[in-house]
């Protein structure tokens, strides 16, 4: 391999891919239309992407809350600061762990299936069929999935946070005997609605958009073969994880 092609693989190709993804997004956004069909199709996608991810999100949320509280309790008790347990748990959930973990689970559960679905639609000429019926596939296939992601991910993040707090309460209040009202009282006194909570929700919406955009894009641009679709689903998970963590850092830097 020559140096040129190595540079190509490392730098030029990813930049090209990004360019294509952005162009794809602009095309999709420019052809947005809002009507009854779009609304119903978006709701259908909220079901497929959101409701079907609910169970994994609830289970993961509960155990993340449990283990996080366990770790925080152990650390905080060394400083005799266990009264800060609720605050530390709620802040780390609302600001970081809720949005980031939820969207990564979402990419694995819903993102991959969106990618595979669109890839298969391409392979079986369903997208061509739409085109031929004078139905814009951007409007019919891409738009509802983009919107559904922006709606579903924040809702999933909220469910995740509630379940994680529940896990925290189960561990600290029921197992470690920390006073329940003071646990909540500390959270209420220190977690800012705007900066901490709504900031986290803003992140959730941005991540939801990122995850659904990438899932749809990789499906759309996949090679219409079994191998191509398999590769595209892998790309969806990896790229979403990296993009989300990178965006998370940038957003956090601006929001703090």
């Amino acid at each position: 391999m020559t140096t040129g092609s190595v540079t190509g693989k490392l730098f030029v190709d990813p930049v090209k891919e990004m360019g294509r993804a952005v162009l794809f997004l602009f095309t999709a956004l420019s052809r947005m239309r809002f009507g009854k069909t779009q609304f119903l199709e978006t709701m259908r996608q909220v079901y497929f992407m959101g409701v079907r991810s609910l169970v994994i999100i609830m289970i993961s949320g509960f155990f993340v809350g449990l283990v996080l509280t366990l770790q925080l309790y152990d650390t905080l008790s060394r400083f005799g600061a266990t009264e800060a347990l609720g605050t530390a748990l709620a802040l780390s959930l609302f600001r970081e762990l809720g949005p980031v973990l939820t969207v990564i689970l979402f990419a694995g559960r819903a993102g991959t299936s969106v990618t595979a679905e669109i890839g298969l639609m391409k392979a079986t000429e369903q997208l061509d069929a739409l085109d031929l019926m004078a139905i814009d596939p951007m409007e019919r296939i891409v738009q509802p999935r983009l919107l559904a992601g922006i709606l579903a991910v924040p809702a999933l993040v909220l469910v995740f946070n509630v379940m994680a707090l529940l896990g925290g309460v189960v561990f600290s209040v029921f197992m470690m005997g920390i006073d329940g009202p003071s646990f909540w009282g500390n959270i209420q006194a220190t977690v800012a609605l705007g900066r901490d909570f709504m900031g986290g929700m803003f992140k959730a919406a941005v991540f939801g958009f990122l995850a659904s955009w990438l899932a749809v894009y990789f499906g759309w641009s996949s090679k219409p073969t079994g191998e191509g679709v398999a590769l595209a689903t892998t790309q969806t998970v990896i790229t979403t994880a990296i993009a989300v963590l990178l965006t998370d850092f940038i957003l956090s830097a601006f929001m703090l």
């Binding site: 469910v159 707090l165 959270i187 006194a189 220190t190 977690v191 609605l193």
Partner: peptide, 13 residues
């Protein structure tokens, strides 16, 4: 969940 968390788990703004 949004309402629950906003009311119960934050300073309520």
């Amino acid at each position: 969940c949004l309402i629950f968390l906003a009311v119960q788990a934050t300073d309520g703004g």
